[in-house]
Amino acid sequence: MIKILKEIWALIRKETILIWKDKRGRIILIMPIVVQTLIFGFIASFDLNRADFAVLDLDHTHSSRRMSQSFDGSEIFHRTATLQNKAQIKEILDSKKAQMVLVIPGEFEKRLLNGSPAQIQAVISGVNSNVASSLQYYVQRIVEDFNTSRLKDEEKEAVSSSPKYVLRSWYNPNLETRWTILSAIVTILAVIQVMVLAGQSVAREEELGTIDQLLVTPMATISIMIGKAIPPVLVGLLQSTIVLAVSCFFFKIPFSGSLVLLYFGLVLFATGIVGIGLCISIVAKNMQQAMLYSFTVLMPMILLSGFATPIRAMPEIFRYLTYLNPVRYAVEFCQRVFLEGAPLESVATLLFALLLIAVGSFLFSLLLFRRKLS
């Protein structure tokens, strides 16, 4: 047993030296992760902090001016133009000078005073659906505040007895998408480098002509595969640690869960990705082919992870495909442990799925390697 462990350790050292011997290679392993984490933290956000809008007031009354001023007084909306007719709406949206046009129809105040339905129209550019959805939400909130303000002025007694609501958000009090994104890319950013390193491990031996030297050693096939698998797993854990450190100490996102539980899940996840990468490396005939195959597999895995698109919004056939995707389980696991502080019993199903994928992919890569040798 000790002899086998020494053989595996020797192969781990060899693989680690190959990864770290090149100065540029070391920089590539660390610097992109730091830069990408900062970019995701500062730039990749679905939060809407500013929206340019224009006003078309066809009523020109006290109530219509009060409505437009409600938008002017918000922190989100910034008026860039005041229109005179409906023909200008298309022009200003097409020119990107405004993302929304607030249209207040004629007889707006008259309808309000008569108790008739008084509608306003928010014409929103739907080029970016995320921004359009956020604009709809803010418009709704401002109109609700306008109605509440009117009732307070005109029917104070009715307002005092009307129900009020208080909105509270758990795990992300200010609903910052930065928290959601950074807690997910702990796994997303690491998976790319881990897949590439694992995908090149066997293909590199074939391309350099050293595969025969490896095979004539007294090492068993499983020992070779374990020795090939561990260095990429360690690189993945290092990169996840960098992302975690930047998220917690630079962006001040509170880590609510157990580090031991988090790293246990990350080890299972990285092992599963390495298993898939080894399968690619065994099938590929050279490093260039392995790189191409790795990125061909990576893109669908990330898209089907639920990171960018909710899984429930996907077509049914793709929702079933996500059950085979380790990134799906890793993203959910990481977010729940990071933000919610979920205990082991709450994420046991996710860990079991990651374990199945890790064992299954590694055993399949072992089978492919043995068939290739035979």
Rank of each mutant, 00 (worst) to 15 (best):
L237V: 02
L355C: 14
L366T: 06
I28C: 01
F108N: 10
L339H: 00
N147W: 01
R370E: 07
M301E: 04
S346T: 08
E345M: 01
M1Q: 04
Q288D: 06
Q36V: 12
E15S: 05
S74N: 14
Y137K: 12
L244N: 13
P254C: 15
E155S: 11
R204M: 09
I27V: 14
G41W: 01
G106I: 00
V35E: 09
E7F: 05
E340R: 01
S149Q: 14
M301D: 02
T80G: 13
S365P: 09
G265V: 03
E107K: 12
G236S: 02
W179I: 15
R141E: 13
E15Y: 03
L367W: 09
Y171M: 14
I311F: 10
I226G: 10
L339V: 00
V359E: 06
N85K: 05
A198L: 07
V243S: 09
F269G: 11
T177I: 11
I253T: 08
Q136H: 13
F333S: 12
L355H: 06
V101T: 10
N85G: 10
S129D: 01
P117K: 14
A342H: 03
F369N: 02
K97S: 08
A229I: 03
I181S: 00
E332T: 07
N85E: 12
V331W: 00
F77G: 00
K252P: 14
V243F: 03
T210Y: 00
M31C: 10
I2F: 09
R370T: 02
I30R: 02
G41F: 03
W9I: 02
R204T: 11
M67Y: 07
S281H: 07
R150I: 07
Q136I: 06
L113D: 12
I43E: 13
M287S: 10
I33A: 11
L339D: 03
L237T: 02
N286E: 13
A308N: 07
V101Q: 08
G73E: 07
S223K: 07
K285H: 15
E75H: 11
D22T: 08
M291I: 12
V233W: 01
L344F: 05
R50H: 15
E7G: 03
E155N: 14
S68P: 07
I89T: 12
S247E: 03
I302T: 06
F264K: 09
A353D: 05
L182P: 15
I280M: 09
Q136W: 04
I19A: 04
I89R: 09
Q99C: 13
D22L: 03
V131A: 15
K23A: 04
K90F: 03
G265Q: 06
I302H: 00
Q213K: 12
A158Q: 15
L238C: 02
A348M: 13
M225H: 01
F40G: 02
N147M: 08
K252Y: 13
